[in-house]
């Protein structure tokens, strides 16, 4: 059974209201996205800026109220109060900018033990100190750093503190929203390797959002590709990276700059994401798509099964059932 399942999850933002307070403009940041996360699995989420990755993660976690759809935790709807409570403890989140997400006036110990206190997980100070020391060791920081403040740490170390805090309540899943984007490549590797090790030790699941497609490919078992709020492709990491089916995925993968001076890109890369307030008709990708035809302009393609564990939302992808 899936650990977490999003079913047709939708999140809209009201951008503008008229003088009666009625919504004038509605921005659909996440449009009926269905996705599962299995126990111990890493699911990567990619797509251009503004395509709804963060909003999806936040809505899935319940940080944003959903507009429509459902979220299931181990098969049960998190709308049920006791399920929701359990879910919110079992799923934690880490962010791109660890500095902004750590309170500068709190010591590392306070930051890490806050969730412990919130969930009443440690009976006394000694036990709490010990837990914090253990957690710091797990993220390769010295336990002595517990009494220091966030500004005394480098970006990579702050990300470690954020991870230690997320681990404090011993969660089953961590949503990682661009956790390495702000870091140097050599430090990125340290964090990625640590995430992998923690996953093995603790059977953790990750929802991993990042701009760097090769790193997402490296870390994830499956990859989901979003475009303008829609999940347009989903499949095993190697398949999506090496044999992308959706024309948008093909363009995205082709764009990745390869560290090989003799690599030559063959796929045409063109166009930009349109405004989310003015979403194209039919297939949202049609204005940029080299295969676009009449049907694409008028009919919305739904995400459908197109092979072993593979899904794509495109009229021109062969295979599977309509």
């Amino acid at each position: 059974m899936a650990l977490i399942e999003a079913k047709e999850l939708t999140k809209q933002f009201v951008i503008d209201r008229n003088w009666l307070g009625r919504p004038k403009k509605v921005l659909t940041a996440v449009n009926r996205v269905s996705l599962t996360i299995e126990p111990g699995e890493t699911v990567g989420l990619v797509g251009e800026s503004g395509c709804g990755k963060s909003t999806f993660a936040r809505t899935l976690l319940g940080l944003y109220p959903k507009t429509d759809g459902d979220v299931f935790y181990k098969g049960r709807n998190i709308g049920e109060p006791e399920i929701g409570k359990d879910y919110r403890r079992q799923v934690q989140m880490i962010f791109q900018d660890p500095y902004a997400s750590l309170d500068p006036r709190m010591t590392v110990e306070d930051i890490i033990s806050e969730p412990l206190r919130n969930y009443g997980l440690c009976s006394d100070d000694r036990e709490r100190r010990q837990r914090v020391a253990d957690l710091l060791t797990q993220v390769d920081l010295r336990p002595e750093t517990a009494q220091r403040y966030p500004h005394e740490f480098s970006g990579g170390q702050r990300q470690r503190i954020g991870i230690a805090r997320a681990l404090a309540v011993d969660p089953e899943c961590i949503f990682c929203d661009e956790p390495i984007s702000a870091l140097d490549v050599s430090v990125q590797v340290q964090i990625v390797n640590m995430l992998k090790r923690l996953q093995e030790d603790r059977q953790l699941s990750y929802l991993f959002i990042a701009h760097d497609l090769s790193m997402v490919h490296h870390l994830s078992r499956r990859i989901g590709v979003m475009y303008l709020g829609n999940l347009v492709e989903l499949g095993p990491s190697d398949a999506v990276f090496h044999r992308p089916l959706h024309p948008y995925t093909q363009m995205l993968i082709a764009s990745v700059p390869r560290p090989d001076p003799n690599y030559r890109r063959t796929t045409l890369v063109s166009g930009e994401v349109p405004s989310p307030l003015d979403v194209p008709t039919g297939c949202v990708f049609h204005p940029r798509c080299p295969y676009c035809d009449e049907r694409c302009r008028n009919e919305v393609p739904v995400l459908r099964s197109v092979g072993e564990e593979r899904f794509a939302a495109c009229h021109h992808v062969k295979g599977g059932t309509d």
């Binding site: 140097d184 490549v185 050599s186 490919h217 490296h218 190697d238």
Partner: peptide
């Protein structure tokens, strides 16, 4: 060499990235 060893290998997801320890 360390910088290059920090880059994932698209042809081998399982490759361990050795990277560079420590920080500048």
């Amino acid at each position: 060499k360390g910088l290059l060893a920090s880059l994932p290998d698209p042809s081998d997801r399982e490759k361990v990235l050795t990277g560079i320890p420590g920080q500048a």
